[in-house]
Amino acid sequence: MFTNFPLFPQQASAQAGQVDAIYFFMVAVTAFFSILIAGLVVFFAIKYRRRHRDEVGYAIHGSLALELLWTVIPFVIVMVMFAWGAKVFFELYRPPVGAMEIYVVGKQWMWKVQHMDGQREINELHIPVGRPVKLIMGSEDVLHSYFIPDFRVKADVIPGRYNVLWFTATKPGTYKLFCAEYCGTKHSGMVGNIIAMEPEAFQAWLGGGAASESPVAQGEKLFSDLSCNTCHMADSQGRGPMLTNLFNKRVELQNGQTVVADEAYLRESIVNPQAKIVAGFQPIMPTFQGLVSEEQLLQLISYVKSLSTQGAAPAPSGTTAPQMPQASDRPVVEKK
Rank of each mutant, 00 (worst) to 15 (best):
T3S: 14
S13V: 01
A16W: 10
A16Q: 06
F24Q: 07
V27K: 10
A28V: 14
I35Q: 04
L36S: 00
L40K: 08
D54H: 12
V56I: 15
Y58S: 09
A59Q: 14
W70D: 04
I73S: 01
F75Y: 10
F75N: 02
A83V: 12
V88A: 03
V88C: 05
F89A: 11
E91S: 12
Y103I: 00
W109Y: 15
H115S: 04
D117G: 02
I122N: 07
I127Y: 01
K134S: 08
G138N: 08
S139A: 15
I148F: 04
V153E: 09
A155E: 15
N163K: 11
V164P: 00
T168M: 10
A169F: 08
T170R: 07
C179D: 15
A180W: 08
C183P: 02
H187K: 07
I195V: 11
Q203H: 07
W205Q: 10
G207N: 14
G208R: 08
G209F: 03
G209N: 09
A210I: 09
S212P: 00
P215M: 01
A217F: 01
L222Q: 06
S227C: 00
S227A: 10
N229Q: 13
Q237E: 13
R239Q: 11
G240A: 12
T244N: 08
N245T: 07
F247K: 05
F247Q: 02
V251T: 11
G256I: 05
Q257E: 13
V260T: 15
V260D: 07
A261P: 04
L266F: 09
S269I: 01
P273F: 05
A279V: 00
P283F: 02
Q289T: 12
V292F: 06
V292G: 05
E294D: 14
E294P: 01
Q296A: 00
L297W: 00
L307C: 11
S308H: 11
Q310K: 15
G311E: 03
A312W: 01
P322G: 07
V332I: 13
E334I: 12
